[in-house]
């Protein structure tokens, strides 16, 4: 923990003093808890405040802090600190973004206390939504409200559900019974971290790829003791196949989108990176999407990755008709 500076304490004082001025006679313990402070911190701050005032610093020009026998605190003669300091643009933005993010979760009450708070805060900050144009829009990810809600309920109640799931990596549909543990959003998508009976292991599923969901009405299998909360989406194994690609600068999104090992960037902006291959259809799709922007440098545990890409490209080209006749 770093040392508390005068500026840190100043932030506290300028927020706490106005509240005490407006709410006289509250207990020190209550004020401390309200602002998440230790009582000793609050008392230290108040000890400084009552030496503050205006010249000539005579008793009638100093802030009057009084703490009675029962620990009730009152502040008088602090007109200049009777109202809190404005929010900085960053603070206003953070509150609006958190609120808008929470409101964007499908199934959140659009007219509840949070929505009212957001509207009031927006107008106090001078960014109220004229013409229905909101200054901040936070989308945590697309999901069907009913699916998300059922998953969160199952996670909360410790029950199991059956899902029809589209696996993008394998380009296939499967049906599986899962015990959801935690529902979270990351990088624009909703995920559920769950125990999967079909895989007999923990898995992370993308909520928008769950095509349908049925409540199984049975308690979830006990969560293994060694199961950890994961914040990452994917954990590669040592024996997973790997492919090393040389990526042009415009294909740099790949290293942000997928877990990469051994990333090197040359002076010309060309990036060399090793990717873990979870499934062949995934690799074939990635190579087709990257096209001329990527070149395979090496591969391990996978035969002829270049051939996969050529086959996939030919299959797609066949849709566009024989060469020379490419009309729809």
């Amino acid at each position: 923990m770093s040392r508390t500076t005068a500026s840190d304490r100043m932030r506290r004082v300028l927020a706490v003093v106005p509240w005490i001025v407006a709410n006289p006679g509250r207990r020190v313990s209550e004020v401390a808890s309200r602002f998440g402070l230790k009582e000793s911190e609050l008392l230290d701050d108040l000890g400084v405040v009552y030496m503050v005032g205006l010249p000539p610093y005579s008793p009638d020009a100093l802030v009057d802090v009084e703490i009675d026998d029962e620990g009730r605190v009152t502040i008088r003669l602090a007109d200049f600190f009777s109202r809190p300091l404005r929010l900085t643009p960053g603070q206003g933005l953070a509150l609006l973004a958190s609120s808008d993010g929470l409101l964007s979760i499908p199934g959140t009450d659009p007219d509840g206390a949070l929505a009212r708070a957001l509207a009031k805060l927006g107008s106090a900050l001078g960014v109220d939504s004229e013409n229905a144009s909101d200054p901040i829009e936070v989308h945590l990810g697309a999901a069907e409200a009913a699916v998300l809600d059922q998953l969160r309920r199952a996670a909360g109640a410790g029950s199991e559900v059956e899902i029809d799931y589209y696996s993008y990596n394998r380009d296939a549909m499967t049906t599986r019974a899962v015990a959801p543990w935690r529902v979270f959003a990351d990088a624009g998508h909703w995920y559920v971290h769950a125990w999967c009976h079909r895989a007999e292991g923990e898995r992370i599923f993308r909520v928008d790829r769950i095509e349908s969901l049925t409540d199984l009405d049975r308690p979830a299998a006990a969560r293994p003791d060694d199961a950890e909360d994961t914040d990452g989406i994917f954990h590669p194994r040592d024996d997973d196949p790997r492919v090393t690609l040389e990526l042009q600068p415009q294909a740099a999104w790949v290293i942000a989108a997928y877990p990469c090992e051994d990333v090197r960037e040359g002076d010309d902006g060309v990036i060399t990176a090793t990717l873990v291959v979870t499934a062949q259809p995934w690799l074939e799709r990635l190579l087709v999407r990257l096209g001329p922007e990527a070149r395979i440098v090496a591969s391990d545990g996978i035969d002829d990755p270049g051939g996969l890409a050529v086959d996939a490209a030919e299959r797609i080209l066949a849709r566009y008709g024989p060469a020379g006749d490419r009309s729809p």
């Binding site: 932030r11 706490v16 602002f35 809190p84 900085t88 603070q91 953070a94 973004a97 958190s98 993010g101």
Partner: peptide, 15 residues
């Protein structure tokens, strides 16, 4: 619930 770090959200709530 929806966290943004480094913009002073805690101080904003104090205010």
């Amino acid at each position: 619930t929806v966290r943004l770090d480094g913009l002073g959200e805690r101080e904003a709530l104090w205010k």
